[in-house]
Design a protein around this nucleic acid. Sequence first.
DNA 1: GCTTAGCCGGAAACCGGTGTCAAAAACTTT
DNA 2: AAAGTTTTTGACACCGGTTTCCGGCTAAGC
Lengths: 337, 337
Amino acid sequence: MNKGQPTINDVARVAGVSKKTVSRVINASPLLRTDTRDKVARVIAELGYVPNPQARALALRRNFLIGLLHDNPNAQTVLNVQEGILDVIRDTDFALVVRPVDRHSPTLVEDCQRFIERQRLYGVLFLPPISENDDLAQMCAGLGCGYVRMGSAQLDEAAHAVGSNDREAVSGAVDHLVAQGHRRIGLILGPAGFRSAHERATGFREAMARHGLDVPDELVTQGSYRFASGVAGAEALLDVPDRPSAIFCSNDEMAAGALHTARSRGLQVPDDLSLVGFDDAPIAAHIWPPMTTVRWPIRPMARAAALKLIRPDIAGEEASRFPAELVTRASVAQRAG
Amino acid sequence: MNKGQPTINDVARVAGVSKKTVSRVINASPLLRTDTRDKVARVIAELGYVPNPQARALALRRNFLIGLLHDNPNAQTVLNVQEGILDVIRDTDFALVVRPVDRHSPTLVEDCQRFIERQRLYGVLFLPPISENDDLAQMCAGLGCGYVRMGSAQLDEAAHAVGSNDREAVSGAVDHLVAQGHRRIGLILGPAGFRSAHERATGFREAMARHGLDVPDELVTQGSYRFASGVAGAEALLDVPDRPSAIFCSNDEMAAGALHTARSRGLQVPDDLSLVGFDDAPIAAHIWPPMTTVRWPIRPMARAAALKLIRPDIAGEEASRFPAELVTRASVAQRAG
DNA sequence: GCTTAGCCGGAAACCGGTGTCAAAAACTTT
DNA sequence: AAAGTTTTTGACACCGGTTTCCGGCTAAGC
């Protein structure tokens, strides 16, 4: 790390004041004469002094590291979250330390706890799907470690959660399909036990019911949010005798898989089959045809989450829920006939 | 962070020894009687004591934070690198702090320096393309901060670099195309000034020369590693009177863009046009047809880079260069006619 | 002009670890 | 058993900040 970086003692000596006075300047204490403050500030600038965060952390008995625990298959999402958090902490003393975790590990909670204790984290952010694990939230609460969960639904009281309204957004997507004349619409679910998957499915069913449309069991298949499960799901749905004219896929990777299946069967998208995805992952815009999908505001949500963590005083209730929106591209067409 | 976590003093008091002895146990000092070590170890386990990393960092005048500075358009790559680093540091006291940066910022070097100084980083890892910035490497060297650059070519002496042999890999990809009967092969370059782009282009030209094939200027276009530039590049190449039967794209995103262009012109891939990409990004496997591409071992490279940083003693010369390999999928076909 | 209150600045202790060095303990040797 | 040698342990200072507490200086009150 540093070799001969100046310390607070160097500053104090050069400025001819005590450490305490320098400390007051750093922390913008109001009980200082202006000329003293200026003098010290000048020396700080001159020496290029930067306070040692480890020493500060020790003395303050709190540190400036926030952790990101994630287990999300969508790399772009994870990176967007990292960027969002950085937006907030860029000019603070905080730093972001990341930790990919394995949701299926039997020692998940212990591992996370070790991580938090080892680094004495100020707080942690959970990304879905790991954010849906209540054991982790309780562990943090027990440790006295701050935490905020990001997700598709309200997981806790507002102080610990930031979510988007997936349900309404999916509803809107279904409205769009219905408006294009689609009546038989297939559904590829997200993995069981995922709150986001549940929310999206609920939004789908609600909208269909609102339009008086049926959701027969044979038009619903279970997926895993992965490409391959989109392939398999579409296979099943397209094997149904009176096949659907449109499929809603609970995320974009599965939608890309469904597109793959359609193509391998010689079906044209969107003319023979309309598809809608969810997430607005990069792949949605890069496949052919570009995929109509639902975009949720990842980065603003991550900003809000980080703000809740480091400035719980100013992060109000209003920033807990974010709207997702339909992005209309070319994978949906008027139903033929 | 912690509330009432036990300190080394608590352990010492309960075990009836001095702090120093506890410190010796923690650091596995060999000059301890076995019974003393066991006694203290038992107390540590009983109390659930975890050493405070900030205090350690302060006393040792070195901390356990390594930074990842990145500016890579491919999210999956960045995440794979994070995972690779985590593989190495998982059971150490090190933590990974991330920092997305903007390559084009005029204050890039200053920003990075501030980041390093603020957190007193132990060392940093650079991902391409930012790893090609020599100013940054010099800044680190000047700060006495460890650094390792990842990239497609040898950037420094082995202690500070981990690379893959893009050049040979591209050569192999060209061999593959030629073996399939292709003679007129187009090239979409990566952005000017990128070492990886230069390496890939060189590998292409070397292989073509080896086969006695011409690389006319009109079959080479400049790209930016982004999807849209693949679209544009393919437009240009396919407008050439005697259009190429295959195109090598310097990364997968541009290859996806080229595929997009081919499709919009009614050209079948691979029957009318063969395509090869580079990186084996997720998109390469998920588009239709699945893309033949070159895979470089990101995660092992990241592991090697992290190891070089935290254990320069055991990370030998042999781990500086990694082989990239051709992944044959369905975007290349025998040339018609 | 002297006392008292209010502010500013400094000395010293502390946060929780590690390094130095000498004392204590254990083991050898004569 | 005494002296010498080696091993094990502990007292104390220190890393670079912050906090507590107190003395000195200035300004207000009479």
